[in-house]
Simulated scan of single mutants.
Amino acid sequence: MSLLRIDASILGPASAGSELADLVVDTWTAEHPQEQVVTRHLGTDPLPAQAWADAVSAGYAPEDQRTDAQKAAVALAAELRAELTDASQVVLASPFYNFGVSQHLKTWIDLVIASGDPGDRLLEGKKVVLLVTRGGSYGTGTPREGWDHMTDYLRRILVDVWGADLTVVEREFTLVGVNPALDQFKDLGAELKENAQTAAREAGKALAAAH
Results as ranks from 00 to 15, higher is better:
residue 5 R to P: 02
residue 16 A to C: 07
residue 16 A to N: 12
residue 18 S to A: 07
residue 20 L to I: 06
residue 20 L to M: 11
residue 21 A to R: 07
residue 23 L to S: 04
residue 24 V to T: 07
residue 26 D to P: 10
residue 27 T to A: 12
residue 27 T to D: 12
residue 28 W to V: 12
residue 32 H to E: 01
residue 34 Q to R: 10
residue 37 V to P: 01
residue 44 T to D: 09
residue 45 D to M: 01
residue 48 P to H: 05
residue 49 A to L: 12
residue 51 A to S: 09
residue 51 A to Y: 01
residue 52 W to L: 10
residue 57 S to L: 01
residue 58 A to Q: 03
residue 64 D to P: 03
residue 65 Q to F: 06
residue 75 A to T: 13
residue 84 L to W: 04
residue 88 S to F: 00
residue 92 L to C: 02
residue 95 P to F: 06
residue 95 P to W: 04
residue 95 P to Q: 05
residue 97 Y to L: 11
residue 98 N to A: 13
residue 104 H to I: 03
residue 106 K to P: 02
residue 107 T to F: 04
residue 108 W to P: 00
residue 108 W to T: 00
residue 113 I to L: 14
residue 121 R to C: 03
residue 125 G to F: 04
residue 126 K to W: 01
residue 127 K to E: 05
residue 135 G to H: 04
residue 135 G to E: 04
residue 135 G to P: 05
residue 137 S to I: 14
residue 138 Y to W: 13
residue 140 T to H: 08
residue 141 G to C: 09
residue 143 P to L: 11
residue 144 R to A: 08
residue 153 Y to W: 06
residue 154 L to V: 03
residue 158 L to Y: 07
residue 160 D to S: 15
residue 163 G to A: 11
residue 163 G to R: 09
residue 164 A to M: 10
residue 165 D to L: 08
residue 181 A to N: 15
residue 188 L to R: 13
residue 188 L to E: 14
residue 190 A to M: 08
residue 193 K to E: 14
residue 199 A to T: 11
residue 199 A to W: 10
residue 199 A to Q: 14
residue 202 E to A: 14
residue 203 A to V: 06
residue 205 K to T: 14
residue 207 L to C: 04
